[in-house]
């Protein structure tokens, strides 16, 4: 066990855990931030996506000891009032079915738009490739990403 001071959603959070513990479980079990989802545990489904700095990463494969000073943003911290352009677009298109994967989809999409504010359809498909939606809302996700890009520009 070791103490880690983590910068999460603009606040410093202190946890006392084994350094190998993935950020996913630090968030969910130790900080009660359950918006980041467990799907596969091997970085294949994208349900656990968070931002490490400006990049989308799979928190199930990110040991807490590797985070250091880097800023983590989770779905809870993407915007203060749930009004990030991507979140708004998701509501406008009414994307979710079961909704379980959507936090991860939104985190990947918002990281994409940070780096590439006007992605093409192929760029969207390629960036979102690591996020599985078992309900099959892919066409709505693509539409929402495009709306978010338009509203953001």
């Amino acid at each position: 066990m070791a103490t880690f001071n983590l910068k999460i959603n603009g606040k410093t959070q202190t946890v006392d855990v084994d350094g190998a513990t993935p950020m996913l479980w630090v968030l969910r079990d130790h900080l009660q931030m359950v918006g980041t989802k467990f799907g596969c545990g091997i970085a294949q489904c994208g349900a656990c996506t968070v931002h490490l700095g400006d990049n989308a990463v799979r928190s199930c494969q990110l040991p807490v000891s590797a985070v250091g000073e880097q800023e983590i943003t989770t779905i809870e911290g993407l915007s203060e009032h749930g009004d990030h352009p991507v979140q708004k677009a998701w509501l406008e298109v009414d994307v979710p079915q079961c909704g379980y994967c959507q936090a991860g989809q939104i985190m990947t999409a918002s990281a994409l738009l940070k780096h590439n504010p006007n992605p093409t359809d192929d760029e969207i498909a390629s960036a979102m490739h690591g996020n599985i939606c078992r309900c099959g809302t892919y066409t709505r996700i693509k539409k929402a990403v495009k709306i978010a890009a338009e509203n953001n520009s």
Binding site: V34, G35, E76, Q87, L91, P96, G99
Partner: peptide, 21 residues
């Protein structure tokens, strides 16, 4: 009519069984 849980889903509120604490 849009999903009544839409806002909670896109903001990561606890909704699912795995989220129970």
């Amino acid at each position: 009519r849009k999903n009544v849980d839409g806002k909670k889903i896109v903001t990561g509120k606890p909704l699912f069984g795995l989220d129970v604490q």
